[in-house]
Nucleic acid binder design. Structure first.
Lengths: 331, 331
DNA sequence: CTGAAAGCGCTTACAG
DNA sequence: CTGAAAGCGCTTACAG
């Protein structure tokens, strides 16, 4: 239609500077008029890049990841990359599928939100040829860039805030033992106790699985502890909210008789009564910075080790679920 | 490695029944050993299908869609399809991008969660060659399959429940005037008033934008209405929760002095105090059924008009925010 | 049942 | 500055 070869059309679309103005104009007009769009599969096959990144999500139904995804999507799409979502949903089969997607050359890079490298019998995702970035949950010992929050420091800070309010018997409600976040947050909690000169009483360490139900269950145990803790730090908001609602219903005043601190800063933490004191993870920024590193790596840039470990601050959000230790419990 | 042609390898992978058992075994072994994976771009280019579906989401950070996405993902991945996420985020530019993705042959089908067909200057997404399905928000007058909840019937039911508790002054808090959900739910609300013999007093119709903040703002107006309504139906949970929290804080007893009903059944509706009576949308099922229709259409099946309009029931969840009309307000 | 060969729609060295 | 041509890695009618 423009009286030129396909090569010239291709150049008009990808490197307009190579063409004479008149030619470019004719091609552009024809492209516009006929609504021509280059076939992506052909371009991918020839160019050897898909302009797609895979994001591995542990559970797409978990609203925590919505904002992280948003940050990733923003950044990738700004650079012309699309987003392929891989939902793990706790399935081994899905994990293997992720590896296959990479091996089949379906993506140019991977963002891992699940804290581990997907495996399958014949090896793992890291042995593919594409760059990887971990976001939110770090992968211990991995050689690729990681973007997370200062979990350990924040957990230590939680103890300091509670201790400053006079609390000395502080319980801990954690996640599954092998989870990275659980490890970091529990370690930080113990740091905090030590820093404040408080003993680490193992009877006050409870284990959950990051769900609302785990918080409900932990509330039952906590109510029966003697002497009863005057504060509790939960390793995420959902458990904190489950616990808070259950102890309130049982007649315990929050924060009058028990202070509660969560972690993450999910939207609901501000809807409960009383509103939950917590640490806000900058979720969108986490996603964005992770995606930015991935874009650089996908463009062939080598990420220098110094830039490969981004650790953002979790912001302390003091709200209504924390208060001074009850009078009668002061020794 | 197996001593066969590439054609035979291709057959081993896509139609194993065509091969002699011995050949198949040799090929399979070689494939396994060398970790061979067919290049997706080449397959796509040759086969003319991408095995990918595009999901257009109005706002990926809105947790409402998480579960819907989960249902879509489940169903698509069961049939070997991947999921390309397109986040609109209220941007015109993004809408045009969606059209381009389809025109460039990047996907075999589209799920629309945003209640309208993405457009760009040179036409719209529906004029592409791929099948479309709308989920959650119907597209008025569209010729493709749609899966939604019985919004109008549920809203009518809300009025019936409130009227049965003795309420006669019921306010309505809606969304943006042109939104499909708003139209259906307001129409249902009016149906309900009529069915219960209650007048539709226009002063009791408030407008919001489906956000928590809109609920907060509406609470202020509601508190100043004379005579004050004894119940309010909000067109979604977030507005209902914003309103509920604000009137409670202002000293109004819920449900003692005001009953509140929401819509959607988001997780937080069960965390607020008092817990919110609402209608639960079967979000995962909506996603799943929409995806199932799309899979059929992508396989070339014609969806008969009868199956093209799926309308699921929204389940009434009576909780603690609704109660009998206050004594003194009975005429 | 298997192989040789064409061709999907691009991009990009290589010429001119 | 532009065109002719090769080739990306598959799949699939067409032979045999």
């Amino acid at each position: 239609m423009a009286g030129v070869s396909t090569a010239t059309v291709s150049r008009a679309l990808s490197g307009p500077a190579q063409l004479r103005a008149g030619t470019l104009a004719r091609v552009t007009a024809a492209v516009q008029q006929m609504g021509y769009h280059p076939n992506v599969a052909a371009r991918t096959l020839r160019a050897g890049r898909t302009m797609l990144a895979l994001v591995v999500v542990p559970d797409i139904a978990n609203p925590f990841f919505s904002d992280v995804l948003r940050g990733i999507e923003d950044e990738l799409s700004r650079h012309g990359y699309g987003l392929l979502i891989g939902n793990l949903g706790n399935s081994r089969r899905k994990e293997a599928q992720m590896v296959d997607v990479v091996r089949a050359g379906q993506v140019d890079g991977v963002v891992l939100l699940n804290g581990r490298v997907p495996r399958r019998d014949g090896g793992d995702l890291a042995h593919g040829a594409v760059p990887i970035v971990a976001v939110c949950e770090a992968v211990p010992g991995a050689g690729f860039p990681q973007v997370e929050v200062r979990n350990r420091e924040a957990a230590q800070e939680a103890v300091a805030h509670l201790a400053a309010l006079g609390h000395r018997r502080i319980a801990y409600l954690g996640g599954p033992a092998r989870n990275v976040l659980e490890r970091d947050r529990q370690a930080g909690f113990r740091d905090g106790l030590a820093a404040c000169g408080l003993p680490a009483d193992e009877a006050r360490f409870l284990r959950g699985d990051f769900t609302f139900a785990a918080g409900v269950a932990a509330a039952g145990l906590l109510l029966r502890m003697r002497p009863r803790p005057t504060a509790v730090f939960a390793a995420n908001d959902e458990m904190a909210i489950g616990l808070l609602k259950t102890v309130s219903r049982a007649g315990l005043a929050v924060p009058g008789e028990l202070s509660v601190v969560g972690f993450d800063g999910i939207a609901f933490a501000d809807y409960v009564e009383p509103t939950l004191s917590t640490f806000r993870q900058p979720r969108r920024a986490l996603g964005q910075q992770g995606a930015a590193l991935l874009v650089r790596a996908m463009s062939g840039e080598r990420i220098e080790p110094g830039a490969a470990r981004v650790r953002l601050r979790a912001e302390w959000l003091p709200r209504d679920s924390t208060g001074p230790v009850p009078e009668e419990s002061i020794p």
